[in-house]
């Protein structure tokens, strides 16, 4: 089980890192006040400072239970059951992104749809293939043919000469 305070602490740490990254990036371009107004880095610099300082404060608040056990400890963020559901949903999306980048969005979405329908939702293979096959074709005609927008393509499309 992930406790609420752990999640809060994790998020605060993540945001603090983002703040530090922003500050270092901004320092490259000067953060002062030149005769013609603020230098290019000034604005992101102060925004980075706000993110960093506010996140540190949020982190401190989240860490209170460490000092006083029993304060928030029982407040859950994710129950194991929920964690399973969330991972079950997000991991295939991760797969979709990886597959799309390697094989193109059409193939990626077909694989993703087929996978989630068959393995997660126990759809019959035939019905799932039908949906997974129809979606990319529909998307192709709508987006590439009707609206003439280029889609992310992979080796299959190159082979088909599309």
């Amino acid at each position: 089980m992930v406790a609420r305070w752990q999640a809060e602490l994790g998020m605060a740490a993540f945001l603090a890192v983002i703040g530090v990254i922003t500050i270092t990036g901004a320092l490259e371009y000067g953060v002062g006040w030149s005769p013609s107004g603020p230098e290019p880095g000034a604005f992101p610099f102060y925004m980075g400072i706000i993110v960093l300082v506010a996140s540190l404060a949020n982190g401190l608040r989240a860490a209170l239970p460490l000092l006083r056990p029993g304060l928030w400890a029982e407040r859950p963020f994710l129950k194991p059951e929920q964690l399973r559901l969330v991972l079950g949903f997000t991991l295939p999306i991760f797969g979709l992104v990886v597959a799309s980048l390697m094989l193109g969005l059409y193939v990626g979405m077909a694989l993703y749809l087929f996978g989630t329908l068959v393995f997660q939702n126990r759809y019959p293979v035939l019905k799932a293939s039908l949906i997974a096959g129809a979606a990319p074709v529909f998307a192709y005609f709508l987006i590439e043919r009707t609206f003439r927008v280029a889609m992310l393509k992979g080796p299959l499309e190159a082979w088909l000469g599309l």
Partner: peptide, 13 residues
């Protein structure tokens, strides 16, 4: 079960 993944696909497209 169907619409969820389809929305995901639409989002990424």
């Amino acid at each position: 079960a169907i619409i969820g993944p389809l929305i995901v696909v639409v989002c990424f497209i």
